[in-house]
Write a protein that binds this DNA or RNA. Structure first.
Length: 730
DNA sequence: TACTATACGGTTTTT
DNA sequence: CCGTATAGTA
């Protein structure tokens, strides 16, 4: 036991060895959060307070779950396989597979990822003849998911207006369709699990008795439903509630836009009667100046639970700031600086380029590429999201569950088999009439579609029969060949990489079987057949999106993607008001605070050296945009910054020479420039109320002429009618 | 049915 | 600017 607790600081030790009560650990960036979490589990096990099966460990990403298991395995001589440590979704999937009957699901239920769900919604709208102009599928998807994540079924949603009432109806129709097809979307995994626990007392009792210690990572990212689920499974109101060990950092809550509720931390403290709130404030990652900047920035937020990071590492270097004229100059400077660092011995993999939005990577990539510096960009398509892989999976899904209409619609005519829109429409109408799945409707067809689609059904049945006794990889190989997928991509000019990905799918299945089917000690074997488990795995773990260490390449990623990572050298680029903080978030107080937390996350990624950079002009959506420097600069003590470029007073447009293409080219096809004489894009202006700003864009002419001005911290992005607003050139 | 033109929209993202 | 989605044509 002593070994285990060696080298923990006072707070970490206190957290790890807390008594079996609910506790909230406020873990600042770089304070050893994961270590505390895993050591806590190890300590609980080693001291015999709980058995392996009595622990429930919840994370948000598969990566975090895997890391926890790996570290745990390194600390104790135990077989961690079979432990209930995983993501919310992964654990709920496991739970629902074990109790599929009680959850009213087919044993082979499939999981829709975001794209599948959208396709299912589009199909539904079409079948119901709903005008998708009035009810955009994406918007409806967001509505449905938001309701589910708040814990509401369609019948529980309060609808006051006609529009919402209709959306609620569609929500109900969508759920009915999913049920008919035997598929569940991501939020459904949680909601279904929650409802089953709530409704079924024996099952609830069983799990409440079993999980005595529940540990939750990144608690600030939980949404309403996840919190409700935790409450339920912990039996928080019962005589013998489980001990919930919640670790999180309200200052790093950056997923509010997708439903995360920081407020859950406060609710947790109150509702679970948390007696112990422990703050981990010693930072082992960053030098002092970097930490001071981060602390200063985040101090501007209200409603914090309160925390101040410190380090004993010394101040280190100042934060370097570079102000470029244009985005291309910014990129050029970044790359030169990196080359210099590499010459001085830095490893490329220890250098990260961060940006607020992915579109910004383009210029940086271009510059890196032309310099020949190896780099890696995170945030693209993931393996299981590639179309060829999804096509292959669709065949497998049909084998497992023929009622999966999403899979059916995806591959019924891929590779093409002469089944056109007409035939499909006929089939969908018939399916609606008989209230059966597409697959089950085919025998009812007559005429030409009966032939063509009938042949497809025969193919799937043949595949199912022929692969019944094959191993998973053999099965996939057979399906790829007989379905014609391989032939299709072999014939395609650019099909080589797709073929390789299909082979990779077979390897993935081999690897999955290896990890998945090893015997588990003292634990029931995982429920479901290998195929269904593999398909669930493919939906739940679309492949790595987040960076992993290793390769010696400069790392490019959004600030969101950088959360949880650290680098010796970090560049935060594009620090312009309107970009970072993003203009869409500047308006509301809440939005701006989340942007600030994002900035806090970005800054705290750096170990030794931090660069901040901005560009006075930037190509965005095919237009040159002008901006003032980010208001976050004003929140960092001047003494921490070292400006590498001369500081210009209010200084934009000063280095600026108008060039071709900079005149008013706007989305409005009228000829505005004539009427805007005296103003041009990029110009410094002054407004009585908002102060100094820069004209960012313009539209309209004459009386309608409007300009968009970025006033930075004085008022953000504003549209002003020139005929009304008193703007003067500054 | 498959290919090409055009229109549109464009933070952040895991599961 | 640039990728995606839909409409239109061979």
């Amino acid at each position: 036991m002593s070994r285990l607790l060696d080298n923990l600081n006072t707070e970490q030790l206190a957290a790890v060895t807390l008594p079996a009560q609910s506790a909230l650990i406020l873990a600042g960036a770089g304070s050893g959060k994961t270590r505390v979490l895993t050591t806590r589990i190890a300590w609980l096990l080693q001291t015999g307070q709980v058995s392996q099966s009595g622990i429930l460990g919840v994370t948000f990403t598969n990566k975090a779950a895997k890391e926890m298991l790996t570290r745990l395995g390194a600390m104790l001589p135990i077989n961690t396989r079979g432990m209930w440590i995983g993501t919310f979704h992964g654990l709920c999937n496991r739970f629902l597979r074990a109790h599929y009957r009680e959850a009213a699901l087919p044993q082979t239920f499939q999981i829709l990822d975001t794209a599948d769900q959208l396709a299912a919604i589009k199909r539904l709208l079409k079948a119901l003849n709903v005008d998708d102009e009035k009810f955009p599928p994406r918007e409806l998807q967001h509505f449905i998911n938001a309701q589910k994540e708040a814990g509401y079924r369609a019948n529980a949603v309060e609808a006051w207006d006609e529009f919402t009432r209709r959306r609620v109806e569609l929500y109900a129709e969508y759920d009915a369709q999913c049920q008919r097809e035997g598929v569940v979307d991501f939020p459904e995994l949680l909601l279904r699990a929650y409802e089953l626990l709530e409704r079924n007392e024996p099952i609830r009792r069983h799990y409440q008795l079993r999980f005595r210690h529940i540990l939750v990572d990144e608690f600030q990212d939980t949404n309403r439903l996840q919190y409700l689920w935790l409450k339920l499974i912990a039996g928080f109101a019962s005589e013998t509630p489980a001990a919930v060990f919640a670790v999180g950092d309200d200052d790093q809550s950056i997923y509010g836009f997708r439903g995360a509720e920081v407020g859950n931390m406060r609710d947790f403290e109150r509702e679970f009667r948390v007696a112990n709130v422990i703050r981990l404030e010693q930072n082992y990652r960053s030098h002092g100046n970097i930490l001071d900047a981060a602390n200063a920035i985040i101090a501007n937020n209200s409603q914090r639970l309160g925390k101040n990071l410190w380090t004993d590492q010394g101040a280190g270097e100042p934060i370097r700031v570079y102000e470029a004229v244009a985005d291309m100059d910014e990129a050029r400077w970044v790359v030169e600086e990196i080359q210099q660092l590499v010459r001085e011995g830095a490893a490329r993999g220890d250098i990260a380029l961060l940006y607020r939005s992915n579109a910004q990577s383009r210029v940086l990539e271009h510059q890196l590429f032309s310099t020949g510096l190896p780099y890696r960009v995170y945030g693209g398509l993931r393996f299981f999201e590639r179309q060829e892989v999804k096509h292959a999976l669709a065949y497998l899904r049909l084998i497992a569950n023929p009622d999966d209409d999403t899979a059916f619609a995806r591959v019924v005519n891929f590779p093409t088999r002469g089944i056109g829109a007409r035939s499909l429409e006929q089939l969908q109408d018939a399916a609606r009439m008989f209230n059966t799945s597409l697959y089950a409707t085919v025998p009812h067809l007559n005429g030409k579609p009966a032939q063509s689609i009938g042949a497809f059904v025969k193919l799937v049945e043949e595949l199912r029969r022929e692969t019944a006794d094959l191993s998973l990889p053999e099965m996939i190989d057979h399906v790829l060949e007989v379905s014609g997928l391989r032939a299709h991509y072999r014939a395609e000019r650019e099909g080589q990489e797709r073929l390789e990905n299909l082979d990779e799918l077979i390897s993935a299945a081999t690897g999955f079987l290896h990890d998945d089917s090893a015997p588990v000690e003292g634990e029931e074997s995982l429920p479901g057949d290998p195929l269904s488990r593999f398909l669930a795995h493919a939906s739940l773990e679309a492949g790595e999106h987040q960076a992993d260490a290793g390769q010696d390449a400069v790392q490019l990623m959004s600030v969101h993607a950088a959360k949880g990572l650290e680098f010796d050298v970090v560049f935060i680029t594009g620090l312009e008001d309107g970009l970072f903080p993003h203009e869409n978030s500047i308006q509301e107080h809440e939005g701006l605070e989340e942007e600030r937390r994002l900035m806090y996350v970005a800054v705290t990624r750096a170990r030794k050296r931090l660069y901040l950079s901005l560009a006075q002009s930037r190509m965005l959506h095919g237009q040159t945009r002008y901006a003032v420097k980010s208001r976050f600069f004003d929140e960092i003590p001047e003494g921490l910054l070292k400006w590498l470029t001369p500081r210009v007073q209010q200084g934009f447009g000063q280095h600026y020479t108008p060039s071709r293409g900079d005149s008013f080219t706007t989305s409005a096809p009228r000829q505005p420039s004539r009427d805007l004489i005296g103003f041009r894009i990029g110009q410094q202006v002054r407004h009585a109320r908002f102060g100094a700003g820069v004209i960012v864009s313009a539209e309209g002419s004459g009386q309608d002429a409007r300009v968009q001005v970025n006033f930075g911290s004085g008022g953000g992005m504003k549209w002003l009618a020139l005929s009304v607003a008193k703007l003067e050139a500054a």
